[in-house]
Nucleic acid binder design. Structure first.
Length: 455
RNA sequence: GAGGGCGUAGCUCAGUAGGUUAGAGCGACAGUUUGUGGCACUGUAGGCCGUGGGUUCGAGACCCAUCGUUCUCCCCA
């Protein structure tokens, strides 16, 4: 047996880490619920064809596929070999794999809505907090198993939903005390740009190229545009588009001059204006940044799109989302528009850890340790301990009768602030000694007094 | 999918131009009058130097392969 190890890109979480993660989950969950979302859970695995083709070509490659059981059945040997030939040719086949691990929460949600649309009350608002898996190469801030926290609204086209989701982001990150910038753009604006630069079929090439502006700079983007067949004149237009700077208002003004003549451009700009103006009134606009280079990879977005970045942190986006106008039609149920956002808990954790943003209170464990100084003494301690537990005070008793030294050190290691000592003297006097390990102060008090003691 | 860095004790790392029995700090455990911890002191345990080949009289050091890990690109949360 070799040394035990973990699959690439996965992690164990120790006590403190879990407590900190729970703090993030609980914060986000409480915000979801206060905004009127109700929970949903879906299976870890989906049918492969539910997922394939929904995340683009790159996405398909990153889906973890589950090998079918029974491939060793010799009676099906021909079928299996045929299947492997297809796999070698880069295609998947139900002969080899027909299930896959969840890649995100949005598509399983769309599948759920498509299956249950008759029973749901629209607009339907659900939140979902579950792990997803991607066969990505792990690196900083990138894992193969990670959690997403999604909130989606389907069955409503109103921009008030987008407004509300922005408010949800702002509320959640304010509660976490994590300063963020919410980038906002509209696919319609990108579409408009594509239309005036060669046609809507160029949309994907265009967005992929301009999405890289931050990383590789304009000159390399220009090279990429050339290879994709954009004319010099079109490239100039794109450069003008990318050079739009200033406050959100100024940017939108400049953008209107450039794209206002295009129908998609008009609706795109109007939607952006609507959300920004709305949040001028709520005071949340200061967190919003109109960013026309924001594209987002997922093909199914059609309207406003969001991406959240932590301020002053070397980390990719910690959240994202947008409007998709017809996701359930992929599953045969048309005309259910939706909009949703996602929180990336693992990255939020990494940033908060780096910036030391977890409150000390999340690490609180046992509050009181009862010393074990003998069978009868322990029995008395146990009775008192159970009474305190009923008062919601976290207590434990040292399971073995051992030296003071050892029990003290146990309390220190576990960061337990208070100890209660019942030895033969105390037992005889029906009293106990309470000691605060931080101050070193100790009192000998009656059992009744212990029940009302301020720890 | 492409390319770099790194694998030595539980953890963080030393290990000099290849040379005898592999080192430190922290941690763990035990002890320094078994009813008062944190400090200090003493001691103990713990490593086929990631794995497999090769070069050499001799490899933890060099070469090749492999696995793991980490980072960048791609893409994404």
């Amino acid at each position: 047996m070799s040394k035990p190890s973990l699959p690439q890109g996965t992690r164990d979480f120790n006590a403190i880490t879990v407590q900190k993660r729970q703090y993030i989950f609980q914060t986000i969950r409480s915000v979801f619920e206060s905004f009127g979302f109700t929970p949903l859970e879906t299976p870890a695995m989906e049918n492969l064809d539910t997922l394939m083709g929904k995340y683009g070509e790159e996405g398909d490659k990153l889906i973890f596929k589950i090998l079918n059981n029974g491939l060793d059945n010799l009676q099906k040997k021909e079928q299996t070999l045929e299947g492997f030939d297809k796999i070698l040719a880069g295609k998947s086949t139900p002969n080899i794999t027909e299930r896959a691990l969840r890649y995100d929460l949005t598509i399983p949600f769309a599948r759920y809505v498509a299956m249950n649309h008759g029973a749901l009350t629209f607009p339907f608002k659900r939140y979902q907090i579950q792990p997803v898996w991607r066969a990505d190469r792990p690196q900083k801030g990138r894992y193969r198993e990670f959690y997403q926290c999604d909130a989606d609204i389907v069955g409503s086209e109103s921009l008030l939903n987008e407004v509300d989701l922005v408010a949800l982001y702002v509320t959640a990150f304010e509660k976490l005390k994590l300063p963020v910038e919410i980038k906002i753009n509209n696919r319609q604006i990108l579409l408009a740009l594509a239309e005036i630069c060669g046609g809507s079929e160029k949309l994907i090439d265009l967005t992929i190229a301009i999405d890289k502006l931050d990383k590789i700079g304009w000159e390399k983007v220009q090279v990429e545009l050339s290879t994709k067949g954009f004319t010099p004149a079109q490239q100039d237009t794109i450069q003008t588009y990318l050079n739009i700077k200033g406050s959100n208002e100024e940017k939108l003004k400049k953008l209107t001059t450039l794209l206002g003549g295009n129908a998609a451009g008009q609706t795109g700009i109007a939607a952006l204006n609507y959300v920004l103006n709305y949040h001028n009134n709520t005071g949340m606009a200061k967190h919003l940044v109109a960013d026309f280079t924001l594209a987002r990879g997922l093909n199914y977005y059609t309207g406003l799109i969001f991406e959240v970045k932590a301020k002053d942190a070397q980390m990719g986006s910690i959240g994202g989302g947008g409007r998709y106008n017809d996701l359930t039609s992929l599953f045969g149920v048309p005309n259910i528009p939706g909009v949703g956002i996602s929180f990336g808990v693992d990255r939020i954790y990494d940033v908060m850890e780096e910036k030391n943003l977890f409150p000390a209170s999340v690490e609180q464990g046992t509050q009181i340790l009862f010393f074990n100084l003998g069978e009868n003494e322990a029995m008395q301690s146990y009775e008192l301990m159970m009474a305190l537990r009923n008062k919601k005070i976290a207590c434990e008793i040292y399971p073995e009768k051992s030296k003071f030294d050892k029990q003290f050190k146990y309390a220190e290691k576990k960061n337990i602030p208070t100890i209660v000592i019942i030895g033969s003297d105390e037992l005889a006097a029906k009293k106990c000694t309470v000691k605060n390990l931080n101050s070193g102060q100790q009192d000998t008090i009656t059992f009744e007094a212990l029940m009302g003691y301020q720890f």
